[in-house]
């Protein structure tokens, strides 16, 4: 079984909302996961890991309270970077699942190329292209410092987004999708007999 990007983006939004994000940030989570999966990068797995990690902790407010040993939320910080809250070049400490930061950095790569180093992985982003180091473990690192620069050193091969056909979200994401569905469920109101009838507005006899 494979999934469409539209389905997965909607699910990511609901899952993020279901884990407590404000709607506007949850929409950014949907954007980020779709951006990554469009490039066949593991956005679903990254969000699944991040929301699961966050659930196991004591954090309750967005963006995350970082404290001395805490972490930053890649969605909240990513959105802020995309908005321009920081300069183009910035070093961000302790970003959780930094892969989720990349789609927001891409928003500012429209008139320049930007390089992101996170642990052992390097990403390079241009207006319509992207490239990254090939180590998949490094890409999906749980936490690292992120260096965002406009300097170009030993760049990975850049692929144009225009050269990639629309992919499906593959079968291998099934377990992660189950986790996202579990979070998404928090946004659904349990049904009652009253809501079954009045919520949708139909009576018992609706055929004709």
């Amino acid at each position: 079984m494979t999934w469409s990007l539209g389905e997965i983006s909607a699910l990511a939004t609901k899952a993020a909302r279901g884990s407590g994000m404000e709607w506007g940030l949850a929409e950014e989570a949907g954007y980020a996961v779709k951006w990554l999966q469009r490039r066949e990068l593991p956005g679903v797995a990254a969000l699944c890991r991040y929301l699961s990690w966050r659930e196991s902790g004591t954090l309750s407010a967005w963006p995350d309270k970082t404290g001395e040993r805490g972490h930053y939320c890649p969605i909240a910080i990513g959105a802020a970077y995309g908005d321009g809250a920081f300069g183009d070049e910035v070093q961000l400490q302790r970003i959780r699942l930094p892969l989720l930061l990349i789609p927001f950095v891409a928003l500012r790569a429209f008139d320049k190329s930007i390089t992101v180093s996170m642990g052992n992985a390097v990403f390079c982003l241009t207006r319509d292209g992207f490239g990254h180091s090939t180590n998949s473990t490094a890409i999906l690192v749980n936490s690292s410092v992120c260096n965002i620069t406009t300097k170009h050193e030993a760049l990975p091969l850049i692929t144009s987004i225009n050269d990639i056909r629309w992919p499906r979200v593959p079968e291998t994401t099934t377990d992660c999708i189950k986790v996202l569905n579990k979070f998404a469920k928090n946004t659904y109101a349990p049904a009652t007999e009253t809501s079954r009838l009045s919520g949708a507005g139909a009576g018992l006899n609706d055929g004709d």
Binding site: M21, E22, W23, G24, L25, E27, E28, W62, P63, A76, A79, A80, D83, G84, A85
Partner: peptide
């Protein structure tokens, strides 16, 4: 101050600002 600064402190308004 910019919208970016405001939204960093007020993510609850991000949806309606967009």
């Amino acid at each position: 101050d910019t919208v970016a600064m405001f939204l960093l402190g007020h993510p609850e308004h991000r949806h309606i600002v967009r």
